[in-house]
Design a protein around this nucleic acid. Structure first.
Length: 827
DNA sequence: AGCACGCCGACT
DNA sequence: GTCGGCGTGCTC
């Protein structure tokens, strides 16, 4: 008997590979890269990926289970994808299963919750046992016709996985799951059409367009609809998919809502019509003429460092054009893909130039949309341009020529919480190597790491590399401490008289104002005036932020909320002694609204971004020119809000600079510098000239002069010098070991012991234990061990980590209560 | 991750 | 006496 075995990666944080027998009837079909459904543990099954097939049993374990099902006809990932996953798991020290979870859309990995159905064509050849018959009768009597294993087990009140898997192998029941059936379950799509009487003739439409002259967005939308109708040779009154027309362009969605209200458009929901949705009408590419100024990309990784955003985007578009005309696919990862964008942004421009070749991928896409994109990509080597958030790194590209990482200094480039904690820039370079493509890092403010590699010639610049210096807009510094001391500003207020005057002037000139306050909520803490206690989170060692909008106290670390107490819980002073202290974006919004009651003030922060609807409304208002003052946290910086802004106010610069992190200054510089670049661009194209006002309690900070000079390069060189002296990256490589446990003592002792053991194994390496500034989150105490080593001490470090993890459990059994994980190259 | 098993304290 | 909390170990 020719029995073979498959190695299956299971999407769980479990170490090691799992092996399953391959039943005879699947032996012909099975291939590496296919999905496989297997039973795992006593009562669950998972969908995993076949990562290997072997003749001999690769393990000594006796009772090997068999693969239950191969849901696909072909592999859904390639060998190179699996190689990439393995690299990520090894380098970032997590399990392959965790990488799998991050890599595949959830809809491709159904588990015990997945529904099963009775197979009507089933002929009973082998007598079924009682339990098996019970399952069949539950399934056939059920009105819903389909049930999950979990639901069946609940009904039977006992585990039933073995009977269940037998029934699957007999063919009596089928998993209600494969790519196509999932797509059929797609929610209905929303479609719109031009309503009567406007859809009757070209002339009725033209008079409509004439009436809409004052609403350029709405005209644009109608023109977009007409373009589709023309391309597909449809009737004037045909319905078109809303997603197809406006995709994520929020201002168009706003315009659409306006037209719906007026009755110019009408909408309905219907089942997606694949022939329109799926067939992409490929327009021939314009022939590519080589741009002599851009060197051909040669090495593995190159850099595009341009402070003129327009020029940077033009070069990116040119490079993409070059790849497409060579028949290659391009992946472009940019933080823009996660935010609303406009036609002036990179994505908007790509859409105009390559629209039939462009696919946008981000986490906000519905599962059905993600699946159809996977399906398309698996089957094709045709030229395509994929723009996405960091997760698009995992898309199954068959023929990539170029992988672009835009804005590599962005904080979101590194995945933080669930593992794999990978850096998109570094992972993209590895992916390019594995897939035989080139990597390109593009930014107007590249990270210090990237500039370091450029200066040491490790990476090459594709344009002549001349450090630029941008003429900064006028920067005014306001000393808040002095104002508070002189009582020219009340402690309850944050808007200085100077800033107030500037805002007033800008409003008089009908120009827009942007105010940055780096914390969301109303005030970061509420304090009792009589006993001085702050109200803090019961689960974390932070104070609760007061949110006035919801009238709740909220923990920004664990999400805990409580209503605002009337009386101090500590001293029970009957007077209302609890007072909000310090400022968040909500409070700035309130103060501004009170100072300028006639102005339209809008706030954008993570709380607002949560609601897609609110965000769309706001972007629409901004687009229509209705907003006078924008108040936001730093997420506002990358959004398409740049029209007519003439004043940028930073409410508390010292707060941004005081962040306890060796990259804090760099981040602040990048933020403010990018703001300046954007106003610069606007002034060049005939718009208003802008001014920056920095409010701070520390006006002497050297950062301010460095910013005024506008020399990003020199600033980063200074930062690098400091990092060199302090032995920080990129001069060392950093890994943080995070130790968490409910018991404070155990956490602390485990971390201390591990630090000592690591030091004895790696005497040449700098190892420090530290108590994080927030030492307790979600009831878990945290300690961190910071390891800084030389680049060539990689394997030494990994061996030491392995030994310490093993040994600590032996020598100090309490440490088994700790959760230990790693953050490699932390941000 | 999720689940079972086993150990201890709080109750009808 | 048993119920159920959590700590520990296993999953091919």
């Amino acid at each position: 008997m020719n029995h073979r075995f498959a190695t299956i990666a299971i999407p769980l944080a479990v170490d090691g590979a799992f092996h399953y027998g391959i039943p005879q009837d699947l032996s012909e079909k099975i291939q590496v890269g296919m999905r496989a459904v297997v039973s795992f543990g006593a009562k669950r099954f998972y969908t995993g990926i076949v990562t290997g097939i072997s003749q001999d049993c690769p393990t000594s374990i006796k009772d090997i289970k068999e693969v239950l099902l191969l849901p696909d006809e072909r592999p859904i990932v390639s060998l190179s994808d699996i190689a990439f996953w393995n690299w990520l798991a090894t380098y970032y020290m997590c399990t392959l299963g965790e990488v799998l979870r991050a890599a595949l859309p959830a809809a491709l990995l159904p588990e015990s919750r997945t529904e099963v159905i009775y197979n009507e064509e089933f002929v009973e050849e082998i007598a079924l046992n009682d339990l098996e018959l019970q399952i069949i009768s539950i399934l056939t009597s059920e009105k819903k016709a389909s049930l999950s294993l979990d639901a069946i087990q609940k009904k039977l009140n006992r585990p039933a996985i073995s009977a269940f898997t037998h029934l699957i192998s007999y063919g009596a029941i089928k998993l209600k799951e494969d790519i196509s059936s999932r797509i059929k379950k797609l929610p209905k799509e929303r479609v719109v059409r031009i309503a009567a009487p406007f859809n009757e003739s070209d002339s009725s439409l033209n008079s409509l367009l004439n009436d809409l002259k004052r609403a350029p967005r709405q005209v644009e939308l109608i023109e977009k609809i007409m373009e589709h109708i023309f391309l597909k040779e449809l009737d004037l009154n045909s319905y078109l998919s809303v997603d197809l027309i406006c995709n994520q362009n929020t201002s168009l969605r706003g315009a659409m809502n306006a037209l719906l209200k007026k009755g110019v458009l009408e909408d309905l929901y219907r089942t997606p019509q694949p022939e329109i949705e799926k067939t992409h009408i490929y327009q021939p590419l314009q022939p590519y003429t080589d741009n002599k100024d851009i060197a051909p990309i040669t090495g593995l990784c190159s850099v595009l460092y341009k402070q003129n955003i327009e020029e940077k985007e033009e070069i990116i578009i040119d490079l993409i054009h070059r790849e497409l005309s060579c028949g290659k696919q391009v992946l472009c990862i940019t933080p823009e893909a996660n935010r609303p964008y406009s036609d002036n942004d990179l994505i908007g421009k790509l859409k105009q130039k390559f629209h039939s070749y462009l696919r946008v991928y981000n986490s906000r896409l519905s599962e059905g949309k993600k699946l159809s994109l996977w399906q398309e990509l698996i089957q094709t080597e045709a030229p395509l341009i994929l723009v996405g958030a960091r997760s698009s790194l995992f898309l199954p590209l068959n023929n990539p020529g170029l992988i672009i990482v835009d804005q590599d200094q962005d904080y979101g480039m590194k995945q933080q919480d669930p593992a794999p904690r990978y850096h998109t820039r570094d992972a993209a370079i590895c992916l390019a190597q594995i897939k035989g493509a080139h990597a390109l890092i593009a930014s107007e403010t590249p990270s210090a790491e990237t500039l370091y590699n450029l200066n040491t010639d490790k990476w090459k610049s594709i344009v002549p590399y001349i450090p630029e210096r941008v003429e900064m807009p006028p920067i005014e510094v306001i000393d808040l401490d002095k104002l508070y001391r002189q009582k020219r500003l009340q402690s309850d207020n944050l808007v200085s008289p100077q800033l107030e005057q500037d805002i007033k002037d800008a409003l008089d000139r009908h120009e827009r104002i942007l105010l940055i306050q780096n914390r969301r909520g109303y005030s970061p803490y509420i304090k009792c005036k009589s006993c001085n206690t702050r109200i803090s989170c019961p689960h974390c060692s932070v104070s609760l932020t007061y949110h006035k909008g919801t009238n709740l106290m909220m923990c920004h670390y664990c999400g805990y909320t409580m209503s605002v107490p009337k009386i101090c819980p500590q001293c029970h002073n009957p007077e209302h002694t609890l007072t909000p202290f310090d400022f968040g974006s909500e409070r700035v919004e309130e103060e501004i609204s009170q100072l300028f009651p006639k102005a339209k003030v809008v706030r954008i922060d993570a709380d607002i971004l949560q609601s897609k609807k609110k965000m769309e409304d706001i972007m629409f208002q901004i687009d229509m020119g209705e907003v006078d003052i924008l108040v936001g946290t730093q997420i506002i910086a990358g959004m398409p809000i740049w029209d007519n802004i003439s004043l940028i106010g930073v409410m508390r610069l010292d707060n941004i600079l005081a962040f306890p992190d060796f990259r804090a200054h760099e981040r602040a510089y990048q933020l403010l510098y990018q703001l300046a670049l954007r106003t610069h661009r606007q002034a060049k194209t005939g718009g208003v000239k802008a001014k920056i006002v920095l409010q701070t309690k520390d006006p002497q900070h050297p950062f301010i002069d460095e910013l005024k000079s506008g020399d990003y390069n020199e600033f980063i060189m200074g930062q690098l010098e400091e990092r060199n002296l302090c032995e920080f990256p990129p001069f060392t490589r950093m890994t943080i070991i995070i130790i968490k446990c409910k018991d404070k003592m155990i956490t602390h002792r485990t971390a201390g012991l591990m630090t000592n053991m690591l030091r004895s194994y790696m005497p040449q390496v700098t190892i420090d234990m530290r108590i994080p500034s927030i030492e307790r989150v979600e009831l878990m105490y945290i300690r961190e061990i910071v390891v800084r080593r030389k680049a060539n001490q990689y394997s030494e470090e990994r061996t030491a980590f392995g030994r310490v993890i093993q040994e600590i459990k032996l020598r100090y059994p309490d440490s088994k209560r700790c959760r230990i994980y790693f953050d490699v190259d932390p941000l």
